[in-house]
Design a protein around this nucleic acid. Structure first.
Lengths: 329, 329
DNA sequence: GAGTTGTTTGTTAACGCTAACATCTACGCT
DNA sequence: AGCGTAGATGTTAGCGTTAACAAACAACTC
């Protein structure tokens, strides 16, 4: 910076002024400084700036399995939003979701000097870990739906489950089976609750729930178990991947979809439209979720009075061909 | 830090010494300092440290569409590897893949003071942008396969295409059609080259290639076009998503798979095993790829003599049910 | 023309840390 | 005892930036 100042014939402070767009710099001077900067290919040192301003311009994201479509999309949305707000994004992905790991990841980020943290951690344990995390910086959770006091943005999983279940009931199915996600996940719980409530409200019998681990494999295994159960005419799966596995198992067992069994998923992953048959599902806009999370974090950062601590986004049903009317026999 | 020093009754330099594990600190003193650190919940300021050491402990990753399974997995692999090497990772995702965007993203990262950059940028234009990028820090490209001088790690896409094509030929198919990826991508080009060479080596006719944009939708559209072409008995798709769309279109047209048409994909995404039918494909271990890229970057960072500038990983064929023997009629 | 105001620039002092050197102790050797 | 040596600690000076203040100058006002 001293070099630039010398070349432009001004003091280093004036250089700093043009860099930061401070007022009261004569246009001619500004030009000379800019020219010197280009000439020397000068880049301000962010560490020095961070040291004196006490702002790192960096936000942290801790993510669980960023290989999955949901987390990856949220991360993407967060990054995009952060960039437009002129922040950098540093990621820390978790190996496992116990509260120690979450703590550790947040610590790591804090050590780096992030100004705020977004946690993509849908497990109940993770959120409770966060709740007791006395962080020096704002933290917002995303993708979960707990009732904790922590700021968070999530989908209305319950409402999503309701429309899916209702849709099936309206199609004439006597009841709807449910393939839930793994225990401990907020999404699993809320979707299951929504499903159950809808069944009860509709006066339908509530069958035993199966559960998987979100993977297609686990959906397949569940499918094997129910394929020959004549009771089952409609299944609401907690996510599309499991629905895919279920479809596969049903297909192998020779069951017609939706002729004999209707299936609805959750997420609307890009592939869902090309399953056999194309999957009726509940769409979540993960990118939007990430964006909103960052928005909320930014608000906390500037200390806006808590307008709204929880943001909920409504899911939207996508009708395709895997769900149809119940057979009248 | 001064507070810690005072509490422990030592100088700030001694605190620095225990923080950095410097030798010549009496165990008793170290204990007192550690206790003071815990007591005050002190965290070293990374900006100050970066300023004086000139090392940010941060690596940058620029990624194209981190929503896709491949990039997301690589990012994940990179992050994990970076963490074990005690680096932070900062991400910048691109909107588009023109050379200006790449330039911009790398600049952004550089402004932040990263010590090195991994670019997940499979487009030819991106790599050529990198080549002329005179960066002050090491850069490695990943997932591509150009012949440029830039350090990079990639899959041997050509070899992958060869085994897939050969497999189909060995199954008795007179020739193999190809559904290529979009123009401008290194993966598209290399896979297509591998396919073509194998056909030529086997004395088979080289049919016209179709091409998609990696999406299931584009695969579906291509499928619609070839579904009624009796010439087509085997298709090698440049990725699994397009294969999924193709499968769908073929299914709708009533073509039996693999009875009438065999299909092979590329990537082995987690869902591939549950397609209808389960997809024979070529597996890429994206996580491994990311890890290796980081390894290479780390080597550059410590200035190891260029042992090997290009790392290539061999893909592996995964046999499932979508490819079978040609009908003898 | 002296005082007042506003614009433009420069000077100095941090920010929190580590590197380099300086100092002080304890110990062993002759 | 005197000296050298190594270990343990302290002191000082930066790293590159911005904040706060100071100074110089121009343009007004009355």
């Amino acid at each position: 910076m001293a070099d630039v100042a010398k070349l432009a014939g001004v003091s280093h402070q004036t250089v700093s002024r043009v860099l930061n767009g401070a007022p009261h710099v004569r246009p001619g001077t500004r030009e000379r400084v800019l020219a010197a900067i280009r000439e020397l290919d000068y880049r301000p040192n962010s560490a020095a700036r961070a040291l004196v301003t006490r702002r790192s311009q960096t936000l942290g994201v801790v993510s669980f399995d960023s290989t999955l479509y949901g987390p990856a999309s949220m991360l993407d949305g967060i990054e995009r939003a952060a960039r437009t707000a002129d922040y950098f994004v540093s990621v820390a992905s978790l190996r496992s979701l116990d509260s120690r790991s979450v703590q550790e990841a947040v610590d790591r980020l804090l050590d780096q000097g992030v100004e705020g943290v977004v946690v993509i951690a849908p497990q109940i344990s993770a959120v409770s870990a966060l709740a007791k995390l006395s962080s020096s910086v704002p933290v917002v959770a995303v993708g979960s739906g707990s009732r904790s006091r922590m700021p968070m943005v999530s989908f209305d999983n319950r409402a999503g489950a309701e429309v899916a279940t209702r849709h099936l009931l309206d199609l004439g199915h006597r009841t709807v089976h449910h393939l839930a996600g793994p225990a401990g996940w907020m999404e699993s719980r809320d979707r299951q609750d929504g499903w159950r409530q809808t069944l009860e409200a509709g006066g339908a019998r509530v069958p035993r729930v199966g559960s998987g681990d979100w993977s297609a494999r686990s959906g397949y295994e569940a499918g094997l178990r129910i394929a020959h159960d004549p009771e089952v005419t409609a299944v609401f799966c907690a996510n599309d991947h499991m629905a895919l596995g279920l479809l596969r198992a049903l297909h192998e067992a020779g069951r017609a979809i939706p002729g004999e069994i209707s299936v609805i998923g959750f997420d609307d992953i890009p592939e869902a439209a090309y399953f056999t048959p194309p999957l009726t599902t509940v769409r979540q806009d993960f990118g939007e979720l990430g964006r909103r999370a960052l928005e909320l974090l930014l608000e906390e950062l500037v200390g806006v009075a808590h307008t709204r601590n929880h943001v909920q986004i409504s899911p939207e049903m996508v009708l395709r061909r895997s769900a149809g009317p119940a057979r009248r026999d």
